[in-house]
């Protein structure tokens, strides 16, 4: 079983601000886990550490059983490329690339793709998966917020990762699009991906298999 596991992880900033306090947490393959909490509760920090975007002060982080806590940043980048996909609140689509080209961005550093034709084919498949085939040649500025976030989800799937980590994916969307995004993420977990969503949006509760609450750096399951 593929997992992201945090064991007794703590994160201190400036030696006195405790963002995470001895947190143990697991996301399994095929699971949709939502972490909720107020601003400043430490949920984003949890996602950063689980996603290898930041290091922990103490504890262990294991990806698919491998302890990655002490690896250098190049190896961590490699693990992120192969194993993790990210969806952020701000979409971060490149305004100079078309939709399918944006989806190709993570593939450009993946040597498993022999040429751009292969990348484009994969991008087209992902675009179809998120229901944006009719917008494939459009630039991000021509897409709605919901469409951009769906494009970001497709991009997160570019290298066929085991896990998708989403930080407030509906933060910039209206309620109709929020549901659409959570539905897309649910589809991914149903297809066997592990999905970790950090959100203060209560709508996520209707889609998550597990809900965890962060408060003052401490995680508890609901």
């Amino acid at each position: 079983m593929k997992t992201i596991e945090l064991k007794n992880v703590s994160k201190l900033y400036n030696k006195d601000v405790c963002a995470l306090n001895n947190v143990s947490f697991t996301v399994n393959q095929g699971e949709f886990v939502a972490v909720m909490g107020q601003s400043g509760s430490g949920k984003s920090t949890l996602l950063q550490i689980a996603g290898l975007l930041d290091s922990c002060t103490s504890g262990e982080v294991l990806i698919n059983g491998e302890n990655v806590s002490e690896l250098d940043k190049n190896k961590l980048a490699d693990i992120r490329m192969k194993t993790l996909g990210f969806v952020f609140q701000s979409f971060h689509l490149n305004s100079h690339l078309k939709l399918y080209e944006n989806i190709m961005v993570p593939m450009l550093i993946n040597n498993e793709f022999k040429n751009r034709a292969e990348m484009k084919k994969r991008a087209e498949e992902l675009v179809e998966t998120v229901g944006l085939s009719h917008r494939i040649d459009h630039y991000p500025s021509e897409l709605s917020g919901g469409e951009q976030q769906r494009a970001a989800i497709a991009r997160a799937m570019a290298n066929d990762p085991d896990f998708i980590l989403a930080d407030e994916p509906t933060g910039n969307l209206d309620s109709k699009n929020e549901i659409m995004i959570f539905e897309e993420l649910k589809k991914l977990s149903d297809s066997g991906k592990g999905v970790l969503v950090v959100s203060h949006n209560e709508a996520v509760m209707d889609f998550a298999d597990r809900i965890c609450i962060m408060k003052d750096g401490v995680l508890s399951e609901k």
Binding site: N74, A77, G85, F88
Partner: peptide, 16 residues
């Protein structure tokens, strides 16, 4: 900054 952060998040190295 955000775009570059994303690139690093998906695995781009500083060199890339």
């Amino acid at each position: 900054r955000g775009e570059i952060g994303l690139m690093k998040a998906v695995g781009y190295s500083d060199k890339n």
